[in-house]
Simulated assay, not measured.
Amino acid sequence: MKRSRVGDEQIIAVIKENEAGAKVDEPCRRHDIGTATVCSWRKTFGGMAASDAK
């Protein structure tokens, strides 16, 4: 299985940015990821802290 370029801490940081009011497109451009990826991450990692993801 292919490893992700983005770690768990970065995933949660992107989700927190989105929850803070940033549009989904802004963090996606910065981290070079797709908007669908962020939506699926939000389902999986939504509401977690960085320490919870480990």
Rank of each mutant, 00 (worst) to 15 (best):
M1D: 11
M1K: 14
K2E: 06
K2R: 10
R3C: 13
R3K: 15
R5F: 08
R5M: 08
V6R: 09
V6N: 04
G7I: 14
G7E: 08
D8Q: 08
E9H: 10
E9S: 06
Q10T: 13
I11Q: 06
I11E: 01
A13L: 14
V14Y: 00
V14F: 01
I15G: 03
I15T: 08
K16A: 13
K16M: 10
K16S: 10
E17P: 00
N18Y: 12
N18I: 14
E19V: 13
E19T: 07
G21M: 15
G21A: 15
A22R: 08
A22S: 13
K23Y: 01
K23C: 03
K23L: 03
K23H: 05
V24F: 12
D25T: 15
D25P: 10
D25F: 09
E26C: 13
E26F: 12
P27M: 06
P27F: 05
P27I: 12
C28W: 02
C28V: 02
R29Y: 09
R29C: 11
R29G: 15
I33S: 04
I33L: 04
I33R: 07
G34W: 02
G34R: 09
G34C: 07
T35D: 11
T35N: 07
A36K: 15
A36H: 14
A36C: 11
V38R: 05
V38K: 01
C39Y: 14
C39K: 13
C39L: 05
C39I: 04
S40F: 06
S40T: 04
S40Y: 09
W41V: 01
R42K: 15
K43E: 01
K43C: 01
T44Y: 04
T44N: 02
T44G: 00
F45V: 00
F45I: 00
G46R: 06
G46M: 03
G46D: 02
G46C: 02
M48F: 11
A49M: 05
A49T: 10
A49Q: 07
A50E: 08
S51E: 08
S51A: 12
S51Y: 11
A53M: 02
A53H: 00
A53Y: 02
K54A: 03
K54Q: 05
